[in-house]
Amino acid sequence: MSETTPIIHVVDDDEAMRDSMTWLLEGEGYKVVCFDSAESFLKARHDQMRGCLVLDVRMPEMSGLELHEKLEFLGSQLPIIFVTGHGDVPMAVSALQRGACDFIEKPFNNEDLLTRIRRALELDAELSARRQRDGAISHRLDQLTQREREVMQLVVAGKLNKQVADELNISMKTVEAHRARVMEKMGVRTLAELVKAVMTVN
């Protein structure tokens, strides 16, 4: 899995806004990519995108809110910071309620914006790490046989080896053997670790 550096994606139809935003954020040492419309962003978008999205609400053609809906539909987890003008507050509130990351009202304080961007990037990093971990665990889970998975589920549910053997109608020895292989395949040493790993994925 390639480690992509977080990028701040700025979507705004106003050229001056894009340019000044780039100036400001680059001054803070971020990497900035600008898009002049929601459509052009959608065109460039991919699943491995890291960073956050600074999105103007009022745009001709596809508005910021519409883009947000679209991204949700596509399963994007990129944190979004809405930039709204005067009077768009109710709109932004409803967007937030639907799970957008944050919003900021124009004209905004630089520090406010930067704080929000920092927060968004942290969130992104966390989400990205989780994605990776989940990927690894599910990869390991995939390697279990059907029987091992059954044994594992019963074990994680807190059953004793004997109970497991009764339930699956197999011998204690077989249960122990399966259990050992599950621990090995899942790369854990204790039962607690196994439970944690399974819980994470589920």
Binding site: D14, A16, M17, D19, S20, M21, W23, L24, E26, G27, E28, G85, H86, K106, P107, F108, N110
Partner: peptide, 16 residues
């Protein structure tokens, strides 16, 4: 808002 925000950005960037 547009020009004012842009002005603010430019200024803040310079200050930084």
């Amino acid at each position: 808002n547009q020009p004012l925000s842009a002005i603010a950005n430019y200024c803040a960037g310079c200050v930084k």
